[in-house]
Amino acid sequence: MDEPVFRPLRRFGWWWVVPPALVALVGVLALVASGTWAGPFRNVTEVRAMLASKREFFQDPEVKRILLTHGLRVHVTPVGSFDLAEKEDLDSYDFVFPSGQTANERVKERRAGKHTVPYRPFFSPVVLSTYRDYAEALVRAGAVVPQQDGGELYYDLSIETLMGLIDDKKLWTDFGVDTQNRIIVQTPDPCRTYSGAVYVGFVAFAAQRDTPKSEADTIALAQRIKSYFNVEGQHLEDMAPKYFSPEGRTFAPIAVIYEHQFIAYQAASAQPDRDRVLLYPRTAHQSVPELISFGALGDRIGELLMQDADLRKRAVELGFRLLGAGGKPEEDFGAFVSGRGLPVPRLSDTRAYLPDVPLFELMRKEVGNCA
């Protein structure tokens, strides 16, 4: 019988063990640094929210990360401001975030007698976006002037003069741009979006320099200005994605967007995009969205937006102008914008006053042929 042969176990070198250990260590350090290291080992509370255009804030990866460090995750249901305010299942959410006063007031009206707490963490002016050659054409047409210290990125706009160009069916070729298209403004749907409705208010105020005081006056004014919107054809919900796309010029030479969308785009670019510029109406309107809480979870999110330093810093990085606890603008926006090598846009002190909420509702529905 053969003697059994004993083969010693092959000895593993240290180099077989160290690489996996290093990978694990690097992973742990990355989780600790990101603030999410405890994620798999603790409860995360899901907060249900219905949001209009400001949903992009809660869809931002960095905002999601910061909220996770507080054990919170926001599940976003996207919807236009005016659709949001009329949703049948409104009460099933922890908070809503419409973009402007009209929708805010409608939500509060429907929530009468229930927990309804508003938070106003930031604001963003409604502006018009265009491209440099189109802006220079509007300078030649007398509709815009460059802002002083605007670095050729910002212009002040006369809505009245722009309306005159549309009335006269002027073409871009009339002012040196090689396209036979008419000069028009492309707006988001005023039936669904607050920015689209605000542009209705801009045009109405420019046409009359006053707000209507009765239903009859409101309908008459709406019918006067309706042609400025009918000429556009089909409305989209949000013009910003089209404007910032490489094919943006073919969709809308002038589009209504929010300032924060432009600032966030510029801040994320390696170099300022000097082909894309903003037009600031001389009679301005600031969109002050309200996060409206329906309970304890909504309150928690609202308080974090007002108090958490990381969330507020991120809001500025996404282009928003901060509001403090007293409702006054804070200085972070200007410092951030200039720190990115961009000029700080100047806001007009002149306001475009919108009609009272019931009359404004009547006006936008008449102009937009809303169902």
Rank of each mutant, 00 (worst) to 15 (best):
A315W: 08
V18P: 00
S81K: 02
L29W: 05
A38M: 11
G176P: 05
G233L: 11
L9H: 01
G295L: 12
K328A: 12
K365Q: 15
I184K: 04
L362E: 08
V74K: 00
P125C: 14
R182I: 03
W16Q: 01
D217V: 11
D174V: 00
V47H: 01
A38S: 12
G295E: 10
P121R: 13
T45V: 09
K87E: 11
S81E: 12
S99T: 13
T130W: 05
D299A: 08
L22C: 03
D273I: 03
P358E: 12
G150V: 05
Q261F: 09
Y258A: 08
V117N: 15
A315H: 04
T218N: 14
G327D: 10
V63I: 14
L221V: 09
V203E: 11
F122D: 12
D94K: 00
F205A: 07
R314F: 10
L221H: 06
M50K: 10
G324D: 10
M1P: 02
I225M: 15
I254M: 14
V76C: 04
A296G: 11
Y199L: 01
I254C: 09
R249C: 11
D2Y: 04
T45S: 04
F97S: 04
E3R: 08
P343A: 09
P4F: 14
L342Y: 00
Y280T: 10
Y155H: 01
E160N: 00
Q307H: 15
V357W: 00
L318P: 03
D308K: 08
V344A: 02
G368A: 03
S124F: 15
T36V: 12
S293D: 07
P253V: 06
I183Y: 09
E361H: 01
I219R: 12
S338E: 11
E331F: 12
L171N: 11
L84A: 09
E303C: 10
V127Y: 05
T218E: 05
M239G: 06
Q266N: 13
D83E: 13
R140S: 11
R209C: 12
F123R: 07
S245W: 05
A252W: 02
P118E: 15
G100L: 07
V17E: 06
P190W: 13
G35Y: 04
D349C: 02
R55S: 04
L318Q: 12
L311S: 14
E237R: 14
N104C: 12
V32E: 07
F175C: 08
R346C: 03
Q180R: 06
E62W: 08
L72Y: 11
V337R: 05
S99V: 10
A103M: 11
G201D: 07
T69Q: 04
M1S: 01
D94P: 02
F58S: 07
Y228E: 10
H235R: 15
A52Q: 03
D189I: 00
Y265N: 02
Y131P: 08
I66Q: 11
T45C: 03
A240H: 06
G341F: 07
G196V: 15
G196E: 14
A33P: 02
F202H: 07
V23D: 03
L162R: 02
D83C: 07
W172Q: 09
